[in-house]
């Protein structure tokens, strides 16, 4: 079960759960939602959000004030996060999303500097090893998010993704 204590004041503000008709206000509202979604996923180490199931999560449903963000509202939040490079759709219907509290470029930089700091440039590490490194921001990282981030490094010729029998690996340069 997820835990989260750091709710912003908006979470108990009833109209926060109604998509605002005033465009300027809606912009402010969406920005606050983006922040909250990212913080929530980061605190719970969650990487995937499915819009069809999201209403069941306390994130979008405040039981105390019985307010719920609509599916359309959640969609709008995710699209805004997409614009900010903090989310990527996993399918054409845009129901499933990767939530990126670090953008893929940021993840790529974090991973590369870790490899550099720990003397792994030139060596091969498996995705499993990376995700199971303890005490790092990327501890427990979703394999698909990891793959996307490493592809960014690959494009810049700073890494090469290697397909091994029992999963993926990466070689940093």
């Amino acid at each position: 079960m997820t835990t989260f204590e750091d709710w912003p004041w908006q979470y108990s503000f009833p109209p926060f759960f109604t998509v605002q008709p005033n465009l300027q206000t809606r912009k402010i509202q969406l920005a606050a939602w983006c922040d909250l979604v990212l913080k929530y996923h980061k605190a719970n180490n969650l990487y995937v959000l499915d819009i069809r199931e999201a209403q069941g999560s306390p994130l979008f449903h405040n039981v105390d004030i019985s307010r719920k963000l609509s599916i359309e509202g959640i969609s709008e939040v995710m699209n805004e996060m997409h614009r900010r490079h903090n989310a990527e759709p996993l399918d054409k219907t845009k129901n499933r999303w990767h939530v990126l509290w670090h953008t893929l470029d940021e993840w790529a930089a974090i991973l590369y500097s870790w490899a550099d700091d720990t003397g792994q440039l030139g060596g091969v590490c498996t995705f499993y090893e990376i995700a199971n490194t303890s005490g790092k921001e990327f501890s427990g990282i979703d394999q698909d998010v990891l793959l996307k981030a490493l592809r960014k490094l690959e494009q810049r010729k700073k890494a090469e993704i290697i397909h091994l029998d029992d999963g993926n690996g990466v070689k940093f340069f």
């Binding site: 009833p14 109209p15 109604t18 605002q20 005033n22 206000t25």
Partner: peptide, 12 residues
């Protein structure tokens, strides 16, 4: 609402 002073809550 259009002045941005108030927010609408349509769930009550």
């Amino acid at each position: 609402v259009s002045e941005g002073l108030a927010w609408l809550d349509s769930q009550s």
